[in-house]
């Protein structure tokens, strides 16, 4: 199934080459959990805020077709 992976702030350096927006489409197995997809990303997950469709996912949460998995560094400030 297809989901979108969105990388914000300085994680944009991890976007695929030629990716003009902040997100890209990814093909994941139908039973993929959030953790499974995170394990395959070149992003320091332990220092990150992880969101699925803008909300904090539950541990072990299964992804659904069309979900947006977003990561950004835990920084703060504004």
């Amino acid at each position: 199934m297809k989901i979108r992976i969105k990388l914000l702030a300085h994680y944009q350096q991890y976007l695929p080459p030629n990716c003009s927006s902040s997100s890209y489409e990814a093909d994941v197995p139908p039973d993929a959990r959030v953790e499974d997809v995170l394990a395959g990303l070149p992003v320091p997950v332990e220092e990150s805020v992880v969101l699925v469709n803008g909300r904090t996912p539950q541990p072990g949460q299964a992804l659904q077709e069309g979900d947006v998995l977003c990561l950004f560094p835990a920084i703060g400030g504004g």
């Binding site: 914000l8 702030a9 902040s22 969101l51 950004f72 920084i75 400030g77 504004g78």
Partner: peptide, 12 residues
Amino acid sequence: TAYVPPVTNEVG
């Protein structure tokens, strides 16, 4: 801090 608008937008 201009990095923030896409973040707060993502959270809604």
